[in-house]
Design a protein around this nucleic acid. Structure first.
Length: 489
DNA sequence: CAGGCCTTGCT
DNA sequence: GCAAGGCCT
């Protein structure tokens, strides 16, 4: 029998060749042994459907896989796309592959989600020579702890500790490994997802490719990061980085983002007044939620962080949930946000908080319903951040919003979309309403005053837009009673 | 261990 | 001004 010197790099949610430690180590291994190195990607649509991965994200992934294929070929690595069904199919496939191709080592980036970790542990226990490289976070999960040696449960002390550690070590992204002579890029198997994803959904708002992502990162840090704090809450303005789709599938690494910040703002980790501090904090939130996912695996299984969360008496009215999903609640700001999600696969962060608060508090619908709907539609779907954000809104999470803080959709509307230009774009029915009525829709009279109105286009349109699904004062009081009951026991 | 502190607000 | 209560040092 031939000695097993060949190796594989297994790509998951890390679809890039820059700053990819597992890829780099695989190349070094193959150079050392003068052996073969190939790359694989597993398509597991049944697993993805169980995880509520959005069709638009799968399309985004497939477009990046084609790009990755070209880039890998340029350094002499052949990529194979393998169509399977679930994670459980990977073990037999890898067993056969390792035997046939004399594979001695499989390199892969670690993942923080529970099922993904279980998959890897099972493979290792079954004898698959899988070597996991910690590269999911800038600072590996489990390495940022309080003085008791435990994971932090409050963001601010976590972020301080994180910055202290990060500032004491070099943050230098790896380049593209110089490996072998280019080969012709192989033709890849198409993703076979039709059974679980009959509808293909493509986004034109995010270009595919590592080069696009890197350019967008550079431009954001160079031009926009200092204004981020000022503009990030205004959905009508392009004030956010819009990099989340790339981070979610690993076209960019978080280390590239932090290194980018430090290139332009070298003191960002130690200077609390740095213009880059607000966006840096967002990256640290990403790390916080991932570290939590590993420290508290129940979060991956949709259990509330706060034990009391399981006792909340959700109303869970299905018709109201549908109205929320479809952007038909009668609150223009809520409906504009949900339609942005439905139409583009992305929603502005401020609005994610607004609609999450509305669903969980005004409608008293279980945050899990909203979390699932978000994942099913977001191009940047990411378990850690999505779960963290929803539990923060619902008040069940780690370092969450207090239960008695109920966002006022009218205040949020006038504060963050003052001229209603965002709302009007996604809810044209209200485009000719006064600003006052757009922000405070309950003041808008929906009466039809005359026969002329009845037949006018305007009357039809206004009739088509629903009355507010629930009155704010009433809903607020109801939420405080239901959620407050828990605390009183 | 007592005391300061705690993402994005509300009335 | 207020709204708990737990976390962190």
């Amino acid at each position: 029998m031939q000695f097993a010197h060949n190796s594989v790099v297994w790509f998951r949610q890390d679809l890039r060749i820059h700053d990819h430690p597992a890829l780099t180590q695989a190349c070094e291994f193959a150079q050392l042994h003068d052996s073969n190195l190939t790359a694989i990607y597993f398509v597991t649509p049944k697993q993805w459907a169980e995880h509520d991965v959005a069709a638009i994200q799968i399309d985004f992934i497939e477009r990046h896989i084609e790009q990755l294929n070209q880039r890998l070929a340029a350094i002499g690595i052949e990529l194979t796309v393998v169509n399977l069904s679930t994670f459980d199919d990977i073990l037999p496939w890898l067993k056969a592959y390792c035997a046939e191709h004399h594979i001695g080592q499989i390199f892969a980036a670690n993942e923080s989600e529970f099922n993904e970790r279980q998959r890897d542990i099972k493979l290792i226990n079954a004898g698959i020579p899988l070597r996991l490289i910690e590269q999911d976070c800038v600072l590996a999960t489990g390495t940022v702890n309080n003085l008791s040696g435990q994971m932090y449960k409050v963001f601010t002390p976590f972020s301080k500790a994180w910055k202290k550690i990060a500032s004491s070590q070099p943050i230098v992204p790896l380049g593209i490994p110089a490996f072998r002579q280019p080969i012709a890029a192989p033709s890849l198997s198409r993703f076979n997802c039709d059974e679980f994803y009959p509808q293909r959904v493509t986004s034109e708002l995010w270009a595919a490719g590592e080069d696009c992502a890197r350019k967008q990162l550079k431009q954001f840090i160079e031009n926009d990061i200092a204004d981020y704090q000022q503009y990030r809450d205004l959905p009508a303005i392009d004030g956010t980085s819009k990099l989340s789709p790339y981070l979610a599938i690993g076209v960019l690494s978080p280390r590239q983002c932090v290194a980018g910040i430090l290139f332009y703002y070298p003191d960002a980790l130690v200077n609390d007044a740095s213009p880059a501090k607000t966006w840096l904090n967002e990256l640290i939130w990403r790390e916080f939620y991932r570290h939590l996912l590993v420290a508290f695996p129940k979060l991956s299984r949709s259990q509330s962080f706060n034990e009391l969360g399981q006792f909340i008496q959700w109303r869970n009215d299905n018709d109201e949930f549908q109205a929320w999903c479809q952007g038909q609640t009668g609150y223009p700001i809520i409906d504009a946000a949900m339609r942005q999600l439905n139409q583009t696969g992305w929603m502005h962060n401020r609005l994610r908080m607004v609609v999450a608060s509305f669903l969980t508090k005004h409608l008293l619908i279980d945050w899990r319903w909203g979390e699932q709907y978000f994942r099913q539609h977001l191009i940047d779907g990411d378990l850690a951040a999505n779960n963290g954000g929803w539990q923060w809104s619902a008040g069940t999470g780690c370092d969450a919003q207090p239960y008695f803080r109920v966002f006022n959709p009218m205040t949020q509307s006038s504060k963050f979309d003052p001229d209603a230009s965002f709302i009007k774009h996604f809810v044209p029915e209200v485009a000719d309403w006064s600003l006052k009525h757009i922000h405070e829709p309950h003041l808008k009279a929906h009466h039809i005053n005359s026969m002329a109105d009845l037949f006018s286009e305007r009357a039809k349109q206004e009739k088509a837009y629903p009355q507010p699904i629930v009155e704010h004062g009433f809903a607020r009081k109801r939420a405080l009673e239901v959620l407050g009951a828990l605390k009183r026991g």
